[in-house]
Protein backbone atom coordinates (compact mmCIF):
# COMPACT_ATOMS: atom_id res chain seq x y z
CA UNK A 1 0.00 0.00 0.00
CA UNK A 2 2.81 2.37 0.93
CA UNK A 3 4.65 1.65 -2.26
CA UNK A 4 1.59 2.54 -4.26
CA UNK A 5 1.24 5.87 -2.50
CA UNK A 6 4.81 6.92 -3.15
CA UNK A 7 4.65 6.11 -6.85
CA UNK A 8 1.43 7.90 -7.61
CA UNK A 9 2.79 11.47 -7.72
CA UNK A 10 5.76 10.47 -9.82
CA UNK A 11 3.48 9.12 -12.48
CA UNK A 12 1.29 12.22 -12.24
CA UNK A 13 4.27 14.45 -12.93
CA UNK A 14 5.38 12.22 -15.76
CA UNK A 15 1.96 12.58 -17.29
CA UNK A 16 1.74 16.30 -16.67
CA UNK A 17 5.10 17.40 -18.08
CA UNK A 18 4.55 16.38 -21.74
CA UNK A 19 1.17 18.09 -21.69
CA UNK A 20 2.74 21.24 -20.33
CA UNK A 21 5.54 21.21 -22.86
CA UNK A 22 3.06 20.64 -25.65
CA UNK A 23 1.05 23.65 -24.60
CA UNK A 24 4.15 25.78 -24.24
CA UNK A 25 5.04 25.12 -27.84
CA UNK A 26 1.67 26.38 -28.96
CA UNK A 27 2.12 29.75 -27.32
CA UNK A 28 1.39 32.95 -29.13
CA UNK A 29 4.41 35.02 -30.09
CA UNK A 30 2.84 37.87 -31.99
CA UNK A 31 0.18 40.49 -31.44
CA UNK A 32 -2.69 40.10 -33.85
CA UNK A 33 -3.81 43.68 -34.27
CA UNK A 34 -7.31 44.08 -35.52
CA UNK A 35 -7.15 47.34 -37.44
CA UNK A 36 -7.93 48.20 -41.06
CA UNK A 37 -6.11 51.31 -42.34
CA UNK A 38 -8.28 54.21 -43.44
CA UNK A 39 -7.90 57.31 -45.57
CA UNK A 40 -6.51 60.37 -43.83
CA UNK A 41 -7.57 63.62 -45.46
CA UNK A 42 -6.45 67.15 -44.75
CA UNK A 43 -8.10 70.06 -46.50
CA UNK A 44 -9.10 73.59 -45.51
CA UNK A 45 -11.12 75.47 -48.06
CA UNK A 46 -10.19 79.12 -48.05
CA UNK A 47 -11.53 82.16 -49.84
CA UNK A 48 -7.94 83.43 -49.99
CA UNK A 49 -7.12 81.00 -52.79
CA UNK A 50 -8.75 80.27 -56.11
CA UNK A 51 -7.74 76.62 -56.23
CA UNK A 52 -8.46 74.48 -53.20
CA UNK A 53 -5.99 71.87 -52.01
CA UNK A 54 -6.69 68.48 -50.48
CA UNK A 55 -4.01 66.20 -49.10
CA UNK A 56 -4.85 62.49 -49.17
CA UNK A 57 -2.90 60.22 -46.90
CA UNK A 58 -3.72 57.07 -44.99
CA UNK A 59 -3.42 55.64 -41.50
CA UNK A 60 -0.93 52.89 -40.75
CA UNK A 61 -0.97 49.86 -38.54
CA UNK A 62 1.36 50.61 -35.70
CA UNK A 63 4.28 48.54 -36.98
CA UNK A 64 3.66 49.27 -40.67
CA UNK A 65 6.35 51.29 -42.50
CA UNK A 66 5.34 54.74 -43.64
CA UNK A 67 4.62 55.06 -47.36
CA UNK A 68 4.12 57.99 -49.74
CA UNK A 69 0.87 59.93 -49.85
CA UNK A 70 -1.86 58.47 -52.00
CA UNK A 71 -1.68 59.88 -55.53
CA UNK A 72 -4.23 57.72 -57.33
CA UNK A 73 -7.36 58.54 -55.36
CA UNK A 74 -10.59 59.86 -56.79
CA UNK A 75 -11.25 63.17 -55.04
CA UNK A 76 -14.49 65.00 -55.80
CA UNK A 77 -15.47 68.36 -54.37
CA UNK A 78 -19.09 69.31 -54.86
CA UNK A 79 -21.82 71.81 -54.07
CA UNK A 80 -25.19 72.52 -55.67
CA UNK A 81 -23.69 73.93 -58.84
CA UNK A 82 -20.20 72.52 -58.49
CA UNK A 83 -18.78 69.07 -59.24
CA UNK A 84 -15.05 69.11 -59.49
CA UNK A 85 -12.71 66.14 -59.75
CA UNK A 86 -9.40 67.22 -58.26
CA UNK A 87 -6.11 66.44 -59.94
CA UNK A 88 -3.02 65.25 -58.13
CA UNK A 89 -0.16 67.72 -58.30
CA UNK A 90 3.22 66.08 -57.88
CA UNK A 91 5.12 69.20 -56.76
CA UNK A 92 2.42 70.13 -54.22
CA UNK A 93 1.94 66.51 -53.15
CA UNK A 94 -1.81 67.11 -52.95
CA UNK A 95 -4.96 67.31 -55.03
CA UNK A 96 -5.78 70.68 -56.60
CA UNK A 97 -9.22 71.85 -57.66
CA UNK A 98 -10.22 73.90 -60.66
CA UNK A 99 -10.44 77.62 -59.86
CA UNK A 100 -13.76 78.67 -58.34
CA UNK A 101 -15.03 81.16 -55.81
CA UNK A 102 -16.13 79.99 -52.38
CA UNK A 103 -19.55 81.05 -51.22
CA UNK A 104 -19.71 82.11 -47.58
CA UNK A 105 -22.11 79.97 -45.56
CA UNK A 106 -22.24 77.52 -48.43
CA UNK A 107 -21.84 73.81 -47.72
CA UNK A 108 -19.26 71.85 -49.73
CA UNK A 109 -18.97 68.08 -49.84
CA UNK A 110 -16.00 65.92 -50.48
CA UNK A 111 -15.73 62.31 -51.51
CA UNK A 112 -12.40 60.47 -51.58
CA UNK A 113 -12.01 56.88 -52.71
CA UNK A 114 -8.97 54.75 -53.24
CA UNK A 115 -8.51 51.03 -53.76
CA UNK A 116 -8.16 49.12 -50.54
CA UNK A 117 -9.79 51.74 -48.35
CA UNK A 118 -13.28 52.66 -47.30
CA UNK A 119 -14.64 55.68 -49.12
CA UNK A 120 -14.26 58.87 -47.11
CA UNK A 121 -16.96 61.53 -47.20
CA UNK A 122 -17.00 64.93 -45.62
CA UNK A 123 -18.74 68.26 -45.53
CA UNK A 124 -17.88 71.77 -44.44
CA UNK A 125 -19.90 74.93 -44.23
CA UNK A 126 -17.87 77.98 -45.06
CA UNK A 127 -17.91 80.56 -42.24
CA UNK A 128 -19.95 83.67 -42.95
CA UNK A 129 -18.48 86.87 -44.27
CA UNK A 130 -17.66 89.50 -41.65
CA UNK A 131 -16.72 93.15 -41.40
CA UNK A 132 -13.63 94.52 -39.68
CA UNK A 133 -14.86 97.58 -37.75
CA UNK A 134 -11.48 98.46 -36.34
CA UNK A 135 -8.81 98.99 -37.48
CA UNK A 136 -9.90 100.13 -40.90
CA UNK A 137 -7.45 100.74 -43.72
CA UNK A 138 -5.03 103.46 -42.69
CA UNK A 139 -6.03 103.48 -39.00
CA UNK A 140 -3.39 103.59 -36.30
CA UNK A 141 -3.36 100.72 -33.82
CA UNK A 142 -1.87 100.85 -30.33
CA UNK A 143 -1.42 98.33 -27.54
CA UNK A 144 -4.48 99.63 -25.77
CA UNK A 145 -6.75 99.08 -28.76
CA UNK A 146 -9.09 96.22 -29.49
CA UNK A 147 -9.61 94.72 -32.91
CA UNK A 148 -13.34 94.67 -33.50
CA UNK A 149 -15.28 92.81 -36.13
CA UNK A 150 -18.75 91.54 -36.79
CA UNK A 151 -19.50 87.91 -36.08
CA UNK A 152 -18.72 85.39 -38.80
CA UNK A 153 -21.73 83.09 -39.05
CA UNK A 154 -20.92 79.50 -38.03
CA UNK A 155 -17.51 80.37 -36.60
CA UNK A 156 -16.40 80.35 -33.00
CA UNK A 157 -12.70 80.46 -33.70
CA UNK A 158 -10.75 83.36 -35.18
CA UNK A 159 -7.13 84.07 -35.81
CA UNK A 160 -5.29 87.33 -36.16
CA UNK A 161 -1.96 87.48 -37.98
CA UNK A 162 0.16 90.56 -38.55
CA UNK A 163 2.38 90.78 -41.57
CA UNK A 164 4.91 93.57 -41.89
CA UNK A 165 4.64 95.51 -45.09
CA UNK A 166 8.40 95.52 -45.22
CA UNK A 167 8.37 91.74 -45.08
CA UNK A 168 8.21 89.20 -42.29
CA UNK A 169 5.49 88.23 -39.92
CA UNK A 170 4.46 89.89 -36.73
CA UNK A 171 2.42 88.50 -33.86
CA UNK A 172 -0.22 85.86 -34.28
CA UNK A 173 -3.07 84.76 -32.01
CA UNK A 174 -6.12 82.58 -31.79
CA UNK A 175 -9.35 83.88 -30.36
CA UNK A 176 -12.46 81.99 -29.27
CA UNK A 177 -15.77 83.84 -29.30
CA UNK A 178 -18.93 83.01 -27.45
CA UNK A 179 -21.91 81.78 -29.49
CA UNK A 180 -23.95 84.73 -28.21
CA UNK A 181 -21.41 87.33 -29.39
CA UNK A 182 -22.59 89.57 -32.20
CA UNK A 183 -19.40 91.59 -32.10
CA UNK A 184 -16.01 89.93 -31.79
CA UNK A 185 -13.43 91.88 -29.82
CA UNK A 186 -9.77 90.92 -29.75
CA UNK A 187 -7.58 93.13 -27.47
CA UNK A 188 -4.14 93.71 -28.95
CA UNK A 189 -2.35 93.73 -25.58
CA UNK A 190 -3.42 90.13 -24.94
CA UNK A 191 -0.86 88.76 -27.35
CA UNK A 192 1.40 91.51 -28.60
CA UNK A 193 4.20 92.09 -26.17
CA UNK A 194 6.99 93.43 -28.32
CA UNK A 195 7.29 94.22 -32.00
CA UNK A 196 8.46 96.91 -34.32
CA UNK A 197 6.37 99.96 -35.06
CA UNK A 198 5.33 100.28 -38.66
CA UNK A 199 2.84 99.37 -41.36
CA UNK A 200 1.25 95.96 -41.09
CA UNK A 201 -1.27 93.93 -43.01
CA UNK A 202 -3.63 92.16 -40.61
CA UNK A 203 -5.09 88.83 -41.70
CA UNK A 204 -8.22 87.98 -39.74
CA UNK A 205 -9.62 84.54 -40.34
CA UNK A 206 -12.73 82.80 -39.06
CA UNK A 207 -12.95 79.01 -38.97
CA UNK A 208 -15.70 76.47 -39.23
CA UNK A 209 -16.53 73.94 -36.51
CA UNK A 210 -14.55 71.15 -38.18
CA UNK A 211 -11.39 73.18 -37.87
CA UNK A 212 -12.20 73.93 -34.25
CA UNK A 213 -12.81 70.28 -33.52
CA UNK A 214 -9.58 69.15 -35.17
CA UNK A 215 -7.31 71.52 -33.33
CA UNK A 216 -9.01 72.50 -30.10
CA UNK A 217 -11.19 69.66 -28.91
CA UNK A 218 -9.15 67.23 -26.84
CA UNK A 219 -9.93 63.67 -26.04
CA UNK A 220 -10.45 61.22 -28.79
CA UNK A 221 -7.22 60.21 -30.51
CA UNK A 222 -9.11 59.54 -33.72
CA UNK A 223 -9.68 62.94 -35.28
CA UNK A 224 -12.68 62.88 -37.56
CA UNK A 225 -13.33 66.55 -38.12
CA UNK A 226 -16.03 66.84 -40.75
CA UNK A 227 -15.27 63.45 -42.27
CA UNK A 228 -16.68 59.96 -42.00
CA UNK A 229 -15.19 56.71 -43.25
CA UNK A 230 -11.68 57.87 -42.44
CA UNK A 231 -9.78 60.36 -40.36
CA UNK A 232 -8.58 63.91 -40.82
CA UNK A 233 -9.98 67.35 -41.36
CA UNK A 234 -12.21 68.79 -44.03
CA UNK A 235 -12.74 72.36 -42.86
CA UNK A 236 -12.90 75.88 -44.11
CA UNK A 237 -11.87 79.41 -43.31
CA UNK A 238 -12.96 82.87 -44.34
CA UNK A 239 -10.19 85.45 -44.38
CA UNK A 240 -10.36 89.26 -44.43
CA UNK A 241 -7.46 91.68 -44.38
CA UNK A 242 -6.81 95.26 -43.38
CA UNK A 243 -3.75 97.53 -43.28
CA UNK A 244 -2.78 99.64 -40.34
CA UNK A 245 0.04 101.54 -38.77
CA UNK A 246 0.97 100.03 -35.44
CA UNK A 247 2.15 102.54 -32.88
CA UNK A 248 3.60 101.56 -29.52
CA UNK A 249 2.79 103.83 -26.64
Amino acid sequence: MKKKLTRRPTSAIAWLLPVVLLISNQCETYVDIDYEPQLNVFGILSNAQQRQEILVDRTYQIEEPTGPVIDDALVILSRDDLFDTLEFSIPDVRYISSPFTLVPEGTYDIMVSSDGFDTLRGATTIPGNFTIFFPGYGDTLTFQDTITLSRSEGAQLYSVAFSQSAGGFGPFTWHESQPSDTIVQIPVADYWEEALEGYYTIYIASYDNNFYEYYLVEGDSIKQAGVTGGVGLFGSTWIRTTSTYVLFQ
Binding site: Y35, N40, I44, T59, A161, Y203, A205, V231, L233, I239
Partner: peptide
Protein backbone atom coordinates in the same frame (compact mmCIF):
# COMPACT_ATOMS: atom_id res chain seq x y z
CA UNK B 1 -2.40 52.59 -35.57
CA UNK B 2 -0.94 56.00 -36.36
CA UNK B 3 -1.53 58.78 -38.81
CA UNK B 4 -0.13 62.18 -39.62
CA UNK B 5 -1.77 65.07 -37.85
CA UNK B 6 -1.11 68.27 -39.78
CA UNK B 7 -0.58 71.72 -38.42
CA UNK B 8 -1.89 74.74 -40.25
CA UNK B 9 -1.20 78.43 -40.10
CA UNK B 10 -3.27 81.05 -41.91
Amino acid sequence: ARYQYYYWDP
